[in-house]
Amino acid sequence: MKTRITELLGIEHPVIEGGMQWVGKAGLAAAVSEAGGLGMITALTQPTPEALVEEIATVRNLTDKPFGVNLTLLPTLKPISYDAYVQVMVDAGITTVETAGRSPEAFMPAFLDAGIKVIHKCTSVRHALKAEKLGCAAVSVDGFECAGHPGEDDIPALVLLPLAADALSIPIIASGGYGDGRGLAAALALGADAINMGTRFLATQEAAIHDNVKQALVDADERQTALILRTLHNTARIYKNKVADEVVALEQKGGVTIEELAPLVSGKRGASVYETGDIHGGVWTAGMVAGLIHDIPTVKELVHRIVADAESLIRERLSGLL
């Protein structure tokens, strides 16, 4: 299956691992790349730029296939040395970077001078057009179904993807709600050149998280997510657990501040979920695609199944309708 994204990134299959805080580590990224997709380590999962240097080296020891680094630019309570993380990527010769959150404009000169292909995550066409103007090589277009931050416009992929395809000339990666071959075929039909998966890769054998989290995704249906931080205009889609219910209840009362919510939504509490397996121990991101997760395969099995099912669907069912 050849698309503009497989050609641009030098990968076999149009399947990309999304950046995932606390989860996007070397083992999972290498497994995705070895399976023919594009693995992605998450820069800020590493506590320091020096630790990112080591994580990049670990990926290269595990695979010689292309991989990327995610850099999420979001408001945080603790200042982050973004410039130092960017310099690590440049010095390490990283070829693909996925940016998310705020505009990557401040870092584009460094990335472009180093020949790095930047993929920016966007939740609206207007932001995608800005990314194209900045020199991004591609955009990842996130529908409202996605885990993490779906933006504030609440536009689902069925509408957002064709709108983006009509407006953009650079390749598009469909993100949010993808977990099987039907999703890949649909994304291609809507104008995308690849799919980006986060939640689905959580439920794989190589994901370095507690088995309880993986099983929770297998047991979940499409209603097992919650939207928090809506009142602060920083909406996040997370797994619907006791902490999520508490946050939503506080926001419904009105007037709540980020300082009041911080103890509930802290990153450290979320990270502990993946380590301890207490799925109610903190907030952790999950998308509506959880309803389509029914097993915990290896990454290779998952990627190859998705591509094979999409090819079969395109060749047999869709062509047979004509």
Rank of each mutant, 00 (worst) to 15 (best):
T6K: 03
L9E: 12
E12D: 15
I16N: 07
E17H: 15
M20G: 08
M20V: 03
W22V: 01
G24I: 02
L38G: 10
G39C: 10
G39F: 10
T42R: 04
L52R: 10
A57E: 15
N61D: 15
L62E: 12
T63F: 11
K65A: 12
P66T: 07
G68N: 06
N70S: 11
L71V: 10
T72W: 12
T72C: 14
T76S: 13
K78Y: 15
Y82M: 03
M89F: 08
V90Q: 01
D91V: 08
E98N: 14
S103Q: 02
S103V: 01
P104N: 08
P104F: 00
A106T: 13
F107C: 02
F111A: 02
G115E: 07
H120R: 05
K121G: 08
S124Y: 11
S124Q: 08
A128F: 02
A131H: 05
A131E: 11
E132V: 01
S140N: 10
C146M: 13
A147I: 00
G148Y: 06
H149M: 03
D153N: 12
I155H: 09
A157P: 07
V159Y: 11
A164P: 04
D166T: 05
A167W: 12
I172N: 01
I173F: 05
A174W: 03
D180Q: 05
G183N: 02
G183L: 00
A185C: 04
A185I: 03
A189D: 07
G191N: 02
N196S: 12
G198R: 02
A203V: 01
A203L: 00
T204S: 03
Q205K: 14
Q205V: 09
E206N: 05
D211F: 06
V213I: 00
V218L: 10
D219I: 00
A220T: 04
I228N: 00
I228Y: 03
T231D: 13
L232I: 04
A236Q: 12
Y239D: 01
K242N: 13
D245Y: 10
Q252I: 03
G254P: 06
T257M: 05
E259S: 13
P263V: 04
S266W: 02
G270Y: 07
G270I: 00
S272G: 04
Y274P: 03
E275P: 06
T276H: 11
D278S: 10
D278L: 03
D278A: 09
M288Q: 15
A290D: 12
D295K: 14
I296L: 01
K300Y: 13
K300P: 13
V307D: 11
A310P: 08
E311G: 12
R315S: 14
R315A: 14
E316Q: 13
E316T: 13
R317K: 15
R317Y: 15
L318I: 14
L318Y: 14
S319V: 13
G320A: 04
L321A: 12
